[in-house]
């Protein structure tokens, strides 16, 4: 490759980086602006100030933010775990077994994936308040499954189809028990797919906003995206731009870390589940 071409590639790469990272960099920069600096009309703060982080971790907004952060992590992790387990069974059946209704399950998953969340939130709210699930963890975990399950089933069935299941039988022929064959041969083969699925499902749950604002009302279960709208300034009339930016940065950190570590897997998972040749 010629030197000129290399330079062009680097320019293209720089362009892509700028495009993808710019808004993130902006909110990070904003989060380090002091309240007097917010309106400076510039991209960068005049002085880097940590006051917004102090506000959300130890200050006025801590009582709002910390429970929300705990809820977000707890609820999203549980929803991810449940949907992974359920999807694992379903995907195994779809990939390995021959039974009528396979297509029905896959189309149902597809239909659920394109479902407008707002359409079901009111009936859920009414049902939840009757059965006492309103503003509780399970009250969010269950609806989150509607976000995470479909993609989990699709992605996992795609992964499971790639697994050379014959190896299981081969191992059994070689004298391993069924359990040994499963744990020694199949689990290592399936684990990456399950893991990738879990990450993608977690992203979806983490991103939720509509369920979060509609089915919760206190720190008992309110997740971070819903809590962002509740921050306030020194009085109810003042906008809390700085603390919101800081909280936004904090909730972005986990997803960025996941992306940086597992980028190859995530891409494989996203494209594997969606387009299959």
């Amino acid at each position: 490759m010629s030197r000129r071409e290399t330079i062009w590639w680097l320019v293209a790469a720089a362009g892509i980086l700028l495009y993808t990272l710019f808004p993130v960099a902006w909110i990070v920069s904003l989060s380090f602006k002091s309240s007097a600096d917010i309106a400076n009309g510039q991209f960068l703060p005049t002085v880097f100030a940590a006051e917004n982080y102090a506000t959300i971790f130890t200050g006025d907004a801590a009582e709002l933010f910390l429970p929300a952060l705990r809820n977000s992590f707890g609820i999203c992790l549980i929803a991810t775990a449940i949907s992974c387990v359920l999807a694992m069974f379903a995907a195994y059946a779809i990939a390995r077994l021959d039974f009528p209704g396979k297509k029905l399950i896959l189309s149902t998953a597809l239909a659920v994936a394109i479902f407008p969340v707002i359409s079901i939130v009111t009936p859920l709210f009414n049902l939840w308040r009757q059965v006492g699930l309103y503003d509780t963890w399970p009250g969010l975990i269950l609806p989150y499954l509607s976000l995470t399950l479909p993609i989990s089933i699709w992605t996992l069935s795609a992964f499971f189809r790639e697994i050379p299941w014959e190896m299981e039988e081969a191992a059994q022929v070689d004298g391993a028990t069924t359990w040994q064959a499963f744990t020694k041969v199949i689990v290592p083969l399936a684990a990456p797919g399950v893991f990738t699925t879990a990450i993608i499902a977690f992203f979806l749950a983490w991103n939720d906003f509509v369920y979060g604002i509609s089915l919760t009302s206190t720190g008992a279960s309110r997740p971070v995206p819903a809590a962002l709208g509740l921050f306030s300034g020194a009085s109810q009339f003042e906008s809390p731009n700085g603390p919101i930016a800081a909280a936004a940065v904090i909730v972005t950190i986990p997803v960025v870390v996941l992306v940086l570590i597992f980028q190859r897997r995530i891409v494989a998972g996203l494209t594997n589940g969606a387009v299959k040749g």
């Binding site: 808004p23 902006w26 731009n241 930016a245």
Partner: peptide, 29 residues
């Protein structure tokens, strides 16, 4: 590097990206 970068907008919470762009365009901040 590019692959990771391109995943970031996908992974960022929609509400966060909305706040970020809103603050970028708003008159006061």
């Amino acid at each position: 590097v590019i692959r990771a970068a391109i995943l970031i907008p996908y992974a960022v919470i929609t509400v966060v990206s909305a706040f970020s762009w809103q603050y970028a365009f708003s008159l006061d901040s």
